[in-house]
Design a protein around this nucleic acid. Structure first.
Length: 289
DNA sequence: AATAAGGCCAACCGCCTCACT
DNA sequence: CAGTGAGGCGGTTGGCCTTAT
């Protein structure tokens, strides 16, 4: 049986809200809160369904809703999170204070999706990244060169590399690191450096709830800790890492999702020809780009 | 100046999840 | 355990606005 729409009652209004309705809803919630959305319009004297009231409140009237244009940082956050999470708009919005899932969704569909697709068109095979001229002069000449068929692997490990179709331009690799040791994995995290790479090698160190960025050069890099996942799991024999490197607006962004303990390191070489993973004292992977 | 096309965004719709009975 | 309802989520729509022709 199909459930009747929430606005089935005759006489309920639909469509754009008037300033008067906004004021009624705002003042009612300010006074009484919104315990029961379905009952709210009746008590507030609004000819709307509860769902419409809730939407209007959460997307527009809530005092903490941020209006106005998205900042570049917000846009890049959406792109990064969408690459990682997909269409989880409410989850993405939860990383952007004051932004609603509806806003984020609209932003993606009207602007960001096109931007990402344009980037993808400029580099369909992963071999021709378009770099703004300002950055081009700073960066090494081998930016974006495709990964060669082979790569070096630590002596006791095997690695699988394959495409990860989130969006291009990017290199995305998945590592399956076979290890004979048992590893405690107290945390699941996403690391996201917020600054563009500028040709200086950096060492990023991540650990459970304790992340820091180290600099091997002259510029610092900000490392943020997003989604702590406070579960504990034990992995024996196989550890899976996922590394996503992508271009966005001329900046190199990268996102590392990893089941890790405090010994994971990601090292970018000065020329970005090498990415070296170290896991504990035993595992070393070297990937050439 | 008129019209068409496209962009943008608020709002709606239908489905899903979860709490409650 | 099944049924029900409320809230939440993601997809879609419709109308206004801007830009192009």
């Amino acid at each position: 049986m199909v459930r009747a729409p929430c606005c089935w009652r005759k006489g309920l209004k639909k469509g754009p809200w008037t300033a008067e309705e906004d004021e009624i809803l705002r003042s009612f919630i300010k006074k009484h809160g919104h315990g029961n959305w379905r009952a709210l319009p009746k008590h507030a004297g609004l000819l709307r369904c509860g769902k419409s009231c809730r939407l209007r409140w959460t997307n527009y009237l809530r005092p903490d809703v941020k209006r106005g244009n998205f900042t570049k940082e917000e846009e890049e956050t959406i792109i990064k999170l969408h690459a990682s999470l997909g269409n989880k708009w409410s989850l993405i919005a939860s990383h952007l204070p004051g932004r609603t899932d509806n806003e984020v969704k609209n932003m993606w569909h009207t602007r960001l999706k096109k931007r990402v697709l344009n980037l993808k068109e400029h580099r369909p095979d992963g071999s021709n990244i378009s770099i703004p001229s300002e950055e081009q002069s700073q960066e090494p000449s081998n930016w974006g060169s495709p990964p060669p068929p082979g790569f070096e692997v630590g002596s006791t490990n095997t690695v699988q590399v394959h495409d990860y179709p989130i969006f291009s331009p990017q290199h995305a690799l998945e590592f399956n690191v076979e290890s004979t040791s048992t590893v405690q994995v107290p945390d699941y995290s996403i690391f996201s450096p917020q600054h563009s790479y500028s040709g200086i090698s950096r060492v990023l160190t991540g650990g459970a709830n304790d992340y820091k960025a180290e600099t091997v050069g002259t510029k610092s890099i900000l490392l943020t800790h997003w989604d702590p996942f406070p579960s504990s799991m034990e992995v024996s024999g196989q550890i899976q890492f996922q590394l996503i490197i992508q271009w966005c607006s001329g900046n190199l962004l990268f996102m590392v999702e990893t089941y890790c303990n405090s010994q994971v390191k990601l090292i970018l070489s000065p020329k970005l020809t090498m990415i070296k993973w170290e896991y504990g004292a035993t595992t070393t992977l070297i990937i050439w780009f």
